[in-house]
Amino acid sequence: MSRVPSPPPPAEMSSGPVAESWCYTQIKVVKFSYMWTINNFSFCREEMGEVIKSSTFSSGANDKLKWCLRVNPKGLDEESKDYLSLYLLLVSCPKSEVRAKFKFSILNAKGEETKAMESQRAYRFVQGKDWGFKKFIRRDFLLDEANGLLPDDKLTLFCEVSVVQDSVNISGQNTMNMVKVPECRLADELGGLWENSRFTDCCLCVAGQEFQAHKAILAARSPVFSAMFEHEMEESKKNRVEINDVEPEVFKEMMCFIYTGKAPNLDKMADDLLAAADKYALERLKVMCEDALCSNLSVENAAEILILADLHSADQLKTQAVDFINYHASDVLETSGWKSMVVSHPHLVAEAYRSLASAQCPFLGPPRKRLKQS
């Protein structure tokens, strides 16, 4: 649940008159999402009104509101027999009622949201009550392989729920002597030191190019640089560091992050930047690179990204790559990247197969709970 924001200063709310007192009302909304995959969808019983329910879910471990999704594969009634019906059901509720908006969509073979439908307002739910769409999607369109909505005969539904909580009022009075504290510009100011090479005390040599930097900042941000300058190493004695395995453009992006906490060109060089972040123990930059690479996972590059993640101990990226390969196994196994990995990294192939087997055979063990970014 997000923290209630402070109200904007009255002088910034309007260029008009300023009242002596004010009130700011925040209506709290808890948002969460749920993904439900139905394997072997074409084998569902086709009687009209037949119901399939998901397991229950909530916004978190401490949330007492429990929900589930309900599907009628062949419609709810005679009117909707040519459609799939989809509903959000409130299973248990400690209150007399709650209000919530919802959005349903289908994830296609690429994991993209399609055929989205959402409620136009927050509906009133009581325990045992459901709301949804009797005519969510035509069955003939859903079952047509050309539309790519049932890869490997799996129907994957994605649901986003927004639950309306209580409202909170914050009130106060205006004073004539309003003090406005300026925003912190530390990142910009440190970035200026790097860009202008002011007050530098060490030189970093990268592929024949020299960059002036500040030992204190490098040591504070990177345990690797800290070790170089702290001990009686040649880098500490000469205040000069030779860097041979990072390209200059990648190095500059890494230094921008060290000084400012930002990497504006990360998406263009996420793979190389991940390697640099791993070498210099820049954990936050490493996770930022993992996130960017996750966003660009595809059938063509899944094997290469899995190898990269394994090489640099990028655990979150590795998990996402394995899950992606499992979901698109029939396509990924035909790529040149996968065939190369079979020869060069057989242990990763074995890991992917083990994960695929456990996903398809849940009876082999208890269900695993899916539970950071600093």
Rank of each mutant, 00 (worst) to 15 (best):
E195T: 07
S59N: 03
A302H: 00
K135G: 06
L297E: 00
F104G: 00
L190N: 09
L143F: 07
S15W: 11
E234T: 14
M178K: 01
P367L: 13
R198P: 15
R70H: 13
D144N: 08
T335W: 00
M35P: 00
K81Q: 13
A19W: 13
A350T: 11
G172F: 08
S340P: 01
K66V: 05
A100R: 00
K154R: 08
K101N: 13
A281D: 02
D245T: 09
K154C: 09
D77Y: 06
K339A: 06
T260P: 00
S226P: 15
K74A: 09
R70T: 13
F211K: 09
V91A: 09
K134V: 04
K154V: 13
C93Q: 12
C361W: 14
E235R: 04
D77A: 05
A109Y: 07
F211G: 14
E12N: 10
E234Q: 11
C202W: 15
E234K: 12
F257P: 00
D144T: 09
A19Q: 08
A277D: 01
K134P: 04
Q316A: 12
A216R: 01
S197Q: 15
S42W: 07
L88R: 00
P5I: 06
A227Q: 01
G192M: 09
P73M: 07
K180S: 03
I307F: 02
A309E: 00
S162H: 13
V164A: 12
R45K: 07
A109E: 04
G148N: 13
Y24L: 14
K180L: 06
A116S: 12
Y87R: 00
T175K: 03
H312W: 04
S162R: 13
L293V: 14
S330A: 13
F104C: 04
I258H: 00
F199V: 15
M178V: 02
V206N: 08
D166M: 07
A270K: 02
R368D: 08
R121Y: 13
F363W: 14
K318M: 10
M228A: 09
G191L: 09
D144F: 13
P182A: 08
D140V: 06
D310K: 10
S96G: 08
E47A: 07
N196Y: 13
E112G: 08
A61P: 13
R139Q: 15
A207D: 14
F41Y: 06
P17K: 15
K53D: 09
K110C: 10
L69I: 07
F141I: 08
L348E: 01
S222Y: 01
R99V: 11
V164Q: 07
V246P: 12
Y259G: 01
H347K: 04
M233A: 14
V332M: 07
L297K: 01
L218W: 14
F133C: 02
E12T: 10
